[in-house]
Nucleic acid binder design. Structure first.
Lengths: 180, 180
DNA sequence: ATAAAAAGGTTTTAAGTTGCAACTAAAAAC
DNA sequence: GTTTTTAGTTGCAACTTAAAACCTTTTTAT
């Protein structure tokens, strides 16, 4: 049923949420990411698209570069300009950003934003982000529980003894991708 | 290929990301949500589990209740106590929180947090959250594009003329769930 | 019944952060 | 060679945060 992590591990750093928030929890960070996602790559661009102050923008861009989310590169053909781009790490924040945006659509603005984010292959809208079980079922809060890593490994080991191999291989794949 | 939203709609409120950030962008908000998710429901509980100051916690809880993310209810058997619970709206922030946490695991802490969040039905770890096309393919930034809502509707209409009906029904479902 | 402790706040004050406006410095355009 | 563009920095007032002390109500212990 419910969901209750061992609380001692809440305060200390067994959870990476505090670590994430350290980097991306600042006030303007996601707005800068969104602008970057939309092709903005220069200081004055960010400045005019987001309603942010110059000094704050300078500060945030520096931090984001330091955090490895953005890269800063002086432009070759125009040396006044600096090009800011999302790194791979920055691009990997896309699911978080879209989850946030979709939540806002459902509960705050009440409408789908326009334009709509689509798969460029078939030009159809992307799905709502959801929590998925290993077999792709969508899960809600009541479906979730915390299981200790050790217990999980035990389970996987005993599974390979008395059941077919497919589930176990699946579990291992997920385990690796989560750890990577 | 790339991805470039009409920039006039970036600044004004065609996008719900700013709306979301207005509510959940505050410094301690996600830590409070995490604690709530883990079964914490009282003031002193939040206080000791997260390292937050009393006055800030009081302020944040008030805001989150005002925003409809948490409910506040005086306890019946002990009238000193107040019970805070995640509302449905608050629970719906779970995908965003987990996306953030998984990003932190991949890029900040470098390890999967322990304990592991699992599906209580089969006790296997949940998947990494990803952006999915309507047919469940995982998409990355380069696969995405912005399409105007009007254009999408046109496309759906012409599809129903010269193709089978299934894709269109799928599209409509997604459109509705996104708008809800 | 009375005193002590617990729960959930509020108040006060210092330190830190934000945001605006003005300034600078380098490179490019005219 | 003057003006404009780009990407910053600096100074300052207003606001926000954090820590500690205080307050109020309710419960438990004596």
């Amino acid at each position: 049923m419910g969901l209750k992590e061992d609380l001692s591990s809440l305060a200390n750093d067994e959870c990476s949420l505090p670590a994430s928030l350290e980097v991306i929890g600042e006030r303007w960070c996601f707005m800068i990411l969104r602008a970057a996602l939309n092709g903005v790559g220069h200081f004055e661009g960010f400045l005019s698209e987001i309603g942010i102050a110059r000094n704050i923008l300078a500060n945030r861009l520096t931090r984001m570069v330091d955090a490895g989310i953005m890269s800063r590169k002086p432009c070759e053909h125009d040396k006044r300009k600096v090009e800011y781009r999302l790194t791979e790490k920055g691009q990997d924040l896309l699911p978080t950003m879209i989850a946030m945006r979709q939540w806002g659509e459902r509960w705050e603005t009440g409408v789908a934003s326009n334009p709509v984010l689509c798969d460029s292959r078939d030009r159809l809208p992307i799905q709502d982000l959801g929590i998925r079980a290993h077999d792709d079922r969508i899960l809600v809060m009541e479906d979730l529980c915390w299981i200790d890593e050790a217990e999980l490994r035990d389970h996987a080991a005993s599974d390979s003894n008395d059941r077919d191999d497919i589930n176990v291989r699946h579990l291992k794949t997920i385990g690796e991708s989560t750890a990577a």
